[in-house]
Every structure is written in C-alpha cells, then in structure tokens.
C-alpha cells in the first residue's frame, strides 16, 4: 500500500479521542518508584548531619560544598569515570564483532553463540562476581595461567585493584553492548554493505564508511547503557575492588550503610548522578553530530 490514507480512515482516527487514563498506571508507577525516591534523596542531601538523630533539624549546603572541595572524593570520581570509560570502550571493541557476526550469520550455531552472549545474565551477579574473586586472587586461575605461560614469576595483584573491577565489569556488561548493537546491525540492509563492495570499496573501507556510521545508534545505545551501569555498579567493585578499586557507588553505600551518614551519602549520590548526567549529555551531543545524517 502506498499513497495517502483514505479520507474515511483519517477522519475516523481523528474522531477517536485519546484515552488519557491508559497512561495512569505508568504515571503512578513512575511517580512512586522514580520521582518520589529521587525527591526524598534530594531533600535528604540538604539535611543537616547529626549523631543524635537520623538527620538534623535544619537544612544546609554543607554536604555539597564539602564534597566539591574534597580532592579525595574527586579522586574516586575520576577513578569511577575512568573505569566506566575503559569498560565501555573495551566492551564495544569486544562486543561489536560478536554482534556483527550474530547479525549476519546464517549458521545454526548462531543460537548457541547467542546463548553464550547472554550467559553472563543467567547466573546471579553475586555468584558471577564470586567466581571472578576466585579467578583473580593471587593463587587463582588468572595468576597461575600467567605464571605457567612464563609471563610473570610472582603473582600480580588483580584482586582489590581497579583492574580487577574493570575485568569483572567487562564480563558482566558485555551483553548490554552486544544486544542493542545486534538489534541495530540486524536492521541494516545487508545489501548496503554489498553495494559498497560492488562499487570498489574494500571490506574495511565499506565497514568504515557504510556499516559503522549506520550502526551509530546501536553503538550509542550500548555504550550509554554500559557506561551508566558501570558507573553505578555496586556489587562488582565492592567485591573485587577493595579500597584501591573503590568506586563512587561503593563509597556512597559506605556512607549510607556503614557510617549511617544519610544526608552526606545522599549528597554524594546526587553529586555523582549530576556528573554522570553531564558526561552523558556531552556524549549525546557528540554522537548526535555523528548521527545527524541518519534517517
């Protein structure tokens, strides 16, 4: 069917009034589960601290000014962002070929590979991270393998380092970059790449000038997902990071749960959320430029 819809259909569609109450359940959920908790955290972050009550009577900006002026906190912020960035880039580099292959293959092994890809999601996060704890420890599989290969002669510290956290996060979040990319790459007409080849471009040229630009939406979606998840991840850095690999999420939980500092912890959380948001805003602007020509 082509051409404009017939007038009959158009007028009937126009006469139908929007059913506003259908969005109510979603709206209520949104308010209850997203807006209210956020509001309560924001309010909490402006409360005065107290050791004689959960929080003091008055309101203050102190938690924010302390955090912003604290190089120790900024160090952890930087470590968190750096970890998120590395995890994002590495998962993209590892995940893209897998997604590309999955999108194009007609092999019956594709479903096996697909299950392989989502397998990290089939086991609970704590269990997976515990497995990494065993692998990365000084006497663990990783060090033994390196020793056996003759690359090291004494164990290198992997556990309780940012590297350990990065490795754990890459494993956990790889599916989150592959799945959006897979959807995106599957939607790209395979004949477009063939057209590139037929016009005389090599595989690489075709990839760089045709497939890659067209897969930008998938790259954008996947990388934002992984970046945000990495930055806010708690279990993995808490279990694998120790103090060297401590991220903002771990610090926030420490404030809230270990030290019972609700106002300061809330301020820390909002502070990190603001930083994450600005990083994503910049990233969106940059990627939007790369995607402005896409349909």
């Amino acid at each position: 069917m082509t051409g404009a819809p017939s007038p009959a259909i158009a007028s009937r569609g126009g006469a139908q009034r929007p059913v506003w109450w259908l969005i109510l359940p979603a709206l209520v959920l949104l308010v209850c589960f997203l807006v209210l908790p956020y509001v309560s955290i924001v309010v909490m972050s402006f409360r005065e601290a107290s050791t004689r009550a959960v929080y003091g009577d008055g309101f203050t900006l102190e938690h924010y000014t302390t955090v912003i002026a604290d190089p120790f906190i900024w160090g952890i912020v930087w470590r968190t962002l750096r970890t998120g960035l590395i995890v994002t880039v590495v998962t993209l580099l590892l995940g893209y070929p897998v997604a590309y292959h999955l999108a194009r293959t007609r092999s019956r092994w594709a479903s096996v590979l697909y299950i392989f890809v989502i397998s990290p999601l089939l086991v609970g996060l704590v269990v997976r991270t515990f497995a990494w704890l065993i692998i990365l420890s000084n006497g663990g599989v990783a060090n033994n393998a390196l020793k056996w290969a003759g690359l090291i002669d004494r164990p290198i510290q992997l556990l309780n380092t940012p590297l350990g956290v990065t490795i754990g996060l890459i494993h956990v979040f790889l599916p989150f970059v592959i799945l959006p990319l897979l959807g995106n790459l599957q939607a790209i007409n395979p004949e477009v790449a063939m057209a590139g080849r037929s016009l005389g471009a090599s595989r690489l040229q075709t990839f760089l000038r045709v497939t890659l630009p067209l897969s930008m939406p998938g790259i954008q979606a996947g990388s934002i997902l992984v970046f945000v998840l990495s930055i806010s991840a708690y279990v993995t850095p808490a279990m694998l990071g120790g103090s060297q690999g401590r991220t903002m999420a771990v610090l926030v939980v420490q404030y809230l749960v270990d030290s019972f500092r609700w106002p300061a912890g809330a301020a820390l959380a909002i502070f990190m959320a603001a930083i994450t948001l600005s990083v994503i805003a910049v990233y969106l602007r940059l990627t939007a430029r790369a995607m402005r020509r896409l349909p």
Partner: peptide
Amino acid sequence: YVDIAAEVADRWNREIG
C-alpha cells in the same frame, strides 16, 4: 564514640585506603 565514628571511617578511607 558515635560522635567520631563517621570521621574515623572517613579517615581510614583516606589514610589507609
């Protein structure tokens, strides 16, 4: 001790790691 507990935890983070 509750009055210094948060301070001690913070100091541990900074000085010990």
